[in-house]
C-alpha cells in the first residue's frame, strides 16, 4: 500500500510504441530520472487509445492520464496522433461535464530519441496533477 503523507498521484501514460515508448526507453538508457508513479502502457499507435480507455483509467483510480504519440506529420499510421489529440480534447470536455478538471488529461508528441523531453513532460505533468490533488473519483467526492 501507498505510504501516507505526501500525495503521490497515479498517472497513466499511454505511449505509442513507435515513439513515446521508445523515448521512455531512451530516458532510462540515458539515466534521466522521472517520477516513478507514471505508469507506461504500451499501445501500437496513439490512435489506439479510446475515449473509453481514458475514462476507465479514471474509474480505476488514476489521477491523471497522458496520451503520448508521434509528432504531427510523423505518425506511422498517418492520422493516429491527430485522432488521439481530438479524443483527448473530447475527454477534456467530458470530464469537465462531470465535474473533474479537464486538465487531468493531456496529449504530447515525442520522437523516439527525445528521452529528456519524456522526462520533462513526466515531471511537469506530475507537478500539475499534484497541485490539482487526488482525483475526485478516487476519493468518492
Amino acid at each position: 500500500m501507498k505510504a501516507k503523507g505526501a500525495f503521490l498521484p497515479d498517472i497513466v501514460a499511454f505511449c505509442c510504441a513507435q515513439s513515446a515508448y521508445q523515448a521512455a526507453d531512451t530516458a532510462g538508457s540515458m539515466r534521466i530520472t522521472y517520477p516513478e508513479n507514471i505508469r507506461v502502457i504500451r499501445v501500437p499507435c496513439a490512435g489506439r487509445v479510446d475515449v473509453l480507455h481514458i475514462l476507465r483509467a479514471f474509474e480505476k483510480g488514476a489521477d491523471g492520464v497522458l496520451v503520448l504519440g508521434c509528432h504531427e506529420e510523423a505518425c506511422r499510421h498517418l492520422s493516429g496522433n491527430i485522432r488521439a489529440k481530438n479524443r483527448v480534447q473530447r475527454v477534456n470536455t467530458l470530464l469537465q461535464e462531470v465535474g473533474i478538471d479537464g486538465k487531468r488529461v493531456e496529449m504530447f508528441t515525442l520522437a523516439p530519441n527525445q528521452g529528456s523531453r519524456f522526462a520533462r513532460i513526466a515531471n511537469e505533468v506530475n507537478e500539475r496533477i499534484k497541485e490539482l490533488g487526488p482525483s475526485p473519483v478516487k476519493s468518492g467526492a
Binding site: M1, K2, D10, V12, R39, I41, V43, P44, R48, D50, L52, H53, R56, A57, K60, G61, A62, K138
Partner: peptide, 17 residues
C-alpha cells in the same frame, strides 16, 4: 495483440502496489 481487455487489465492495479 492490443484488445480492450488487455489494455484495461493493465490498470487493474492502479492505486496500489
Amino acid at each position: 495483440d492490443w484488445s480492450d481487455e488487455q489494455i484495461l487489465a493493465e490498470f487493474e492495479l492502479l492505486g496500489e502496489y
